[in-house]
């Protein structure tokens, strides 16, 4: 396919993604009349480095950053109202802006995130680079990279979804998959679920992690013919499960994605496996799923599960 057509096709795929679809909507904002000290506390609690500032009608009037607060501390202005020190030159994104326009903003202004506003200039969300990536992944639901250049992506320390560093040694849970024992398939997922059960998380997310991990682990046992590992990382607002193996890789993902398609041999099917639902089930139970695979180089499955969001009241 000529390069231009390809580009046009990609552009068409993302055409209907609007800023409002990919923004994070639980944004922490603060009133311009509050004291700077108040902003300092809120940013400390929420571990954020900046906040949109709003008026009584919740319309965006400025932005306050850590730098502004340090400045206020230096000049002993910490009890002044925020409106005195906030930056009023705010670059915003409109919730109806296209993905292309959002990307342009990131290119033209070197900020890490932008507030998203509605027609009345009210803050309705915030967009970081990560949200863009999420938006794209959401569109595909799954990304499959089958490319020599991507060999370096396999087994790296970086999340394929968020780009953040995932150090295997810092995983909250690890399980080495014994891929020689079909009877043990699912043990890692069961142990992970047990690990999470004692921790006061919502039953639903624990069950979803268990089921999706079970399928990923079973795939390693049935198909990989290699070594495999399950890693679980807990973040403030999400769980990341990574299941990696150094086996034979997935040859045809389009087929593997099809419900009911399976390459499992008969002795595996007799044991109730090989329904051809593995990847479909991972997709069903994870919020985000990325599979990176290359023939004879292994497979890496990464799944994200979002913890139920807490809403933060306007202060």
């Amino acid at each position: 396919m000529p390069e231009n057509n390809k580009l046009a096709r990609y552009a068409a795929i993302f055409e209907d993604i609007k800023a409002g679809d990919i923004m994070s909507s639980n944004v922490v904002e603060i009133s311009a009349e509050k004291k700077i000290a108040h902003a300092k506390e809120l940013m400390k609690i929420k571990k954020i480095s900046g906040m949109p500032v709003v008026d009584e009608q919740r319309r965006l009037v400025g932005i306050i950053s850590i730098e502004d607060i340090i400045h206020a501390l230096e000049f002993n202005k910490i009890n002044d109202p925020i409106r005195r020190i906030m930056s009023t030159q705010v670059v915003t994104i409109h919730q109806g802006d296209s993905l292309a326009a959002v990307v342009d903003k990131f290119e033209n202004f070197k900020f890490g995130r932008f507030p998203v506003v509605d027609d009345d200039n009210r803050v309705c969300g915030i967009i970081s680079k990560e949200d863009i990536l999420h938006g794209i992944l959401e569109k595909f639901n799954l990304i499959y990279i089958h490319d020599r250049k991507r060999t370096t992506t396999l087994n790296t320390e970086y999340s394929a979804i968020t780009g953040e560093k995932l150090n295997a040694e810092e995983a909250n849970f690890h399980y080495r998959i014994d891929s020689s024992d079909i009877d043990a398939a699912g043990t890692g997922a069961a142990k992970l679920k047990q690990f999470l059960s004692g921790k006061n998380f919502h039953n639903d997310i624990v069950r979803r992690v268990g089921v999706a991990t079970y399928e990923a682990e079973t795939n390693v046992v049935i198909h990989s013919r290699g070594q495999g590992d399950i890693y679980f990382f807990q973040d403030e607002d999400r769980f990341i499960v990574r299941v990696v193996d150094n086996g034979v890789g997935i040859e045809d993902l389009d087929k593997a994605m099809k419900e009911g398609y399976s390459t499992a041999p008969d002795h595996i099917r007799e044991r109730g496996f090989g329904a051809g639902m593995g990847i479909a089930n991972m997709k069903r139970f994870a919020d985000k799923l990325v599979i990176i695979s290359e023939k004879n180089a292994g497979t890496q499955v990464e799944m994200i599960f979002y913890l139920p969001t807490q809403t933060w009241p306007l202060i």
């Binding site: 039953n203 399928e215 079973t218 109730g272 496996f273 329904a275 639902m277 593995g278 089930n281």
Partner: peptide
């Protein structure tokens, strides 16, 4: 069901 994946996908707690 006799299929593991069906039990995983189609049941309720």
């Amino acid at each position: 069901s006799d299929m593991i994946s069906d039990i995983l996908a189609l049941t309720n707690p």
